[in-house]
Design a binder for these strands. Structure first.
Lengths: 341, 341
DNA sequence: GTGAAAGCGCTAACAC
DNA sequence: GTGTTAGCGCTTTCAC
């Protein structure tokens, strides 16, 4: 515990009342400058720090927001958390990062944990919940939904252009001359999650490019890990399936795919071109560097924090849905000097 | 805010006093079972959740610990945070993850922020502070120091075997036939940080292998990023420096090195063998897979939480220093089928 | 075993 | 502009 310097001590030292100290701390405007200075001097001399719990108990705000991500060590979410922390800092908020494990239990725990009592609002990835469980999100605190799986819940929602991004990736592969493009990481049983949306974008992309859909090129993998990326490609190759392009539904899968192709001595991008999704920082540093869809992470973070702050401030307009801008980042894994016709 | 169900409401519903409700919540032993059940039923029916702030205000504990890491998106720290959260969960603690940015300002802020008032203790990476600033760690709350830079501070310290690990990596490269081994990521001006210790291990390893030290093979790079790894190798190659092995001081540098070697069409491991440090999850998935020193992250996390919990519990024995066990994980980047003599 | 009352440190409401 | 007072929800004496 920190030493128990209270407002009372500061007030005594500065020769004012506690109310005045509180006013100084809360940025109350109408204070005589010299009073403010005296108080600030006393605070510095005593090393006083506000007791957040007491403040919270009284005014109902903590200045903290929660961020519930599926996994901390997943590059996309780690990078996302970093951006969120920066954005929150700009508006004077601190971030309590939590982990749901992408499980139903973890998600429910996060929605209803003790931590919810000490955050003013929550930024929430609903992985682990079912698409029809939007009613679980009808909570009595400010909540902004992130990612996919659940649409139409009675809360603000910031998401990325899954369908359009996947389509762009697929079309790009086709433009590089690919005709047999693998969709790596599909999950056919899912409702409206990223897998479904990105698979939809993939099929739209094929259509746009005039390439027939071949179910034999759709590889189901779960979770979207590097290991599963390896497994998926290994399985295709072992089965003798012919392909010349891979649209991996996230970068981890793509990294695994690159690795397996490397092991099998299959040249990238000349024999097989690869595009991922998420554009994590690592993408630039693989061999070859991975082309990927950048889903507008910075924009998502900025808007999510903005919406949450508005809700915390009492804004009660109807729920909003924001889809961030995406961008295809072409790198070595898919850039053929002379596209195969 | 959650709906304001208080202990009073629960007590009324269960037909007991608030004290009894509090007793139930705090696991007080001497309660009539039927009373306990009635209270628990009331809690469930009303959806009551303890107000952590009020509880904290009264009893001085929050059940939260802080974890201050230099960067969230750095794979090593992200993985570390994940393990810490798991370990803390086991003992009923939640973790408030913070970011220092590896800057002095960030470190100081973390040591003295408002957050410190709502955590029972802090796990702290002192990057950004100077080696002689151990006195800054003489804080009045439970603190466990992690990583390097500062030794001899008046607090518990859990660290890794930097010297021994670096030596093992260097010796391993020598055993694979390397005679001109680059030390990538040195920082000659540092006190007792990881760079200094790992460089020391490198020189010890050379000595053990009977290889003369060549300052021309020591490459200073800061920060330890993939980009700097690329830069360092590029710079050596451009200068025409001859080398056949790389000891990269962390995995990020090693990934950058692998990438640059790939671009230059230098075969790994046959022409140049590479070993990293940290053994992040990604190491297995590069092309080729990266050999690395696994610094005992799980052990570090477990022991750090254990020590912090002891200190929170009032343990006031003298500061302890624990050095975790390390392990060399040999993979494709350094394993030559027939070591060059 | 359980209840009543005090008070943790702060801020909102209201004096002055 | 600044001081006084009440009370946020809880736990901790101390009764009984």
């Amino acid at each position: 515990m920190l030493v128990a310097v209270t407002m009372r001590d500061v007030a005594d030292r500065a020769g004012v009342s506690v109310k005045t100290v509180s006013n100084v701390l809360n940025g109350y405007r109408y204070l005589r400058p010299e009073t403010r200075e005296r108080v600030e001097a006393a605070i510095a001399e005593l090393g006083y720090r506000l007791n957040v719990s007491a403040s919270h108990l009284r005014k109902g705000r903590t200045g903290m927001i929660g961020l519930a991500v599926p996994e901390l060590a997943h590059p996309y979410f780690a990078e996302f958390a970093d951006v969120i922390v920066s954005e929150a800092e700009k508006v004077g908020l601190r971030v309590l990062i939590e982990r749901t494990g992408a499980t139903r239990e973890g998600a429910l725990t996060s929605l209803d944990s003790l931590q919810r009592r000490i955050t003013d609002g929550l930024l929430f990835f609903p992985l682990g919940l079912e698409p029809d469980e939007g009613d679980l999100l009808a909570v009595d605190y400010p909540l902004v939904l992130l990612g996919e799986r659940i649409f139409g819940a009675p809360v603000d929602h910031v998401t990325m252009a899954n369908v359009e991004g996947a389509r762009a990736a697929t079309v790009h592969l086709a433009e590089q001359g690919c005709r047999r493009i693998v969709a790596l990481g599909a999950r056919l049983d899912e409702g409206m999650g990223s897998p479904t949306l990105r698979l939809q974008g993939y099929t739209e992309g094929l259509e746009e490019a005039g390439i027939p859909f071949d179910p034999g090129l759709v590889v189901e993998e779960n979770p979207w890990s590097r290991q599963k990326g390896e497994d998926g490609i290994a399985q295709l190759l072992d089965a003798g399936v012919d392909f010349d392009g891979v649209f991996a539904m996230n970068d981890s899968l793509a990294f695994g795919a690159l690795h397996e192709l490397y092991i099998r001595r299959i040249a990238v991008p000349s024999e097989v071109a690869v595009v991922g999704f998420d554009d994590v920082e690592d993408a630039r540093f693989h061999e070859p560097a991975l082309s990927s869809i950048a889903p507008g992470t910075a924009q998502i973070a900025r808007e999510a924090v903005r919406m949450l702050v508005e809700r915390i401030g009492g804004d009660d307009q109807p729920p909003r849905l924001l889809v961030a801008d995406f961008e295809l980042r072409v790198r070595g894994s898919s850039l053929r000097s002379t596209p195969t016709p």
